[in-house]
Simulated scan of single mutants.
Amino acid sequence: MTQRTAPPRETAEPSPQGAPGGDGSGLLDGVPRQRGPREAVGTRVPEPALAAGSRLCTPRPWRLLPTPTGTPFTFGYAIVLCVTSLITAYADPALVHALLQGSSTDVTHLVRMPELVLIGSALWVAGGVTSPFAIAFVLVLTALERRLGGLRTAGVFLLGHVLATLATEVPVGLAVLAGHLPDSSLHRLDYGVSFGVAAGIGALAGLLPLWLRLPLLAGFGWMLLQDLLAFTDPMTNWGHLIALGIGIATWPVVRRWYATRLGTGGG
């Protein structure tokens, strides 16, 4: 009887890398096959991550206003300005005049008690809470604090307030000493937050994209130039322009602060 011989088995050639079983997953059950680059690219993003990304891109207009937790400096400062505005509106006029005169950053007060009047003058809003600079205070400082934090926003505000005040009042004192202005110029009424707000606008412009930065600077600068040409209060108008320039000069610093804040997860 002729013995039947089985046909020779074909030797399985190793599968190329990336083909089914090429990584050994077809030899051992329960060993997951590793994903290749093609599969990693097409991986589906989990739904919670997509939802978080969509929330980041969703406009949130309420963030334009200060909050106690998000922008504590601007929120607390705005409360103070509301209180002082109520005082100017409803208190006895003689008392209001005495308070404003005592807080004025004129030359006489700057020589006698500079720290007190530089802080006190920034606690009032000329024109009340409905004035343009009061509204700009809320919007600009809120936006700046969300980008820089409270302490740095306060630093920008005080820098513009103090330097612009000194830049406008020191020449008055020198002009009086030289005999070009009367002695009454040493006692002019000067108070408000407008210098600090103007510096905040200049600083904030450096953190905005170009399509927002140019209209902001052009519109605000044109408004200040119109006030200066009207010549109703040239010293204050010059102070606004100086404060805006101070804010623009802080761009290298505030941009570095902003980048640091984003890098630490605080933006």
Rank of each mutant, 00 (worst) to 15 (best):
220 F>P: 00
69 T>Q: 15
156 V>E: 00
40 A>R: 06
263 G>D: 00
163 L>Y: 07
40 A>S: 05
141 L>Y: 02
35 R>I: 10
137 F>M: 14
122 A>D: 06
250 T>S: 05
238 W>Y: 12
128 G>C: 05
226 Q>I: 01
263 G>L: 01
184 S>H: 10
143 A>E: 02
16 P>F: 15
217 L>F: 01
185 S>D: 10
179 G>L: 15
24 G>V: 08
159 L>M: 15
183 D>G: 10
184 S>D: 15
241 L>M: 03
21 G>H: 03
181 L>H: 05
9 R>A: 04
66 P>D: 14
225 L>W: 01
192 G>I: 12
19 A>R: 13
236 T>E: 05
137 F>K: 09
104 S>V: 11
214 L>V: 15
206 G>N: 10
119 I>K: 15
191 Y>N: 14
59 P>N: 08
89 A>W: 11
8 P>H: 09
86 L>P: 06
221 G>K: 01
145 E>D: 09
121 S>L: 06
185 S>C: 15
85 S>V: 11
80 V>H: 14
246 I>N: 00
138 V>A: 02
261 R>A: 12
25 S>E: 06
177 L>N: 06
59 P>C: 06
104 S>T: 10
149 G>K: 04
203 A>S: 02
71 T>A: 10
195 F>M: 07
236 T>N: 04
142 T>I: 07
76 G>P: 00
55 R>L: 04
134 A>M: 01
151 L>E: 15
208 L>R: 00
47 E>R: 14
111 V>A: 03
61 P>Q: 02
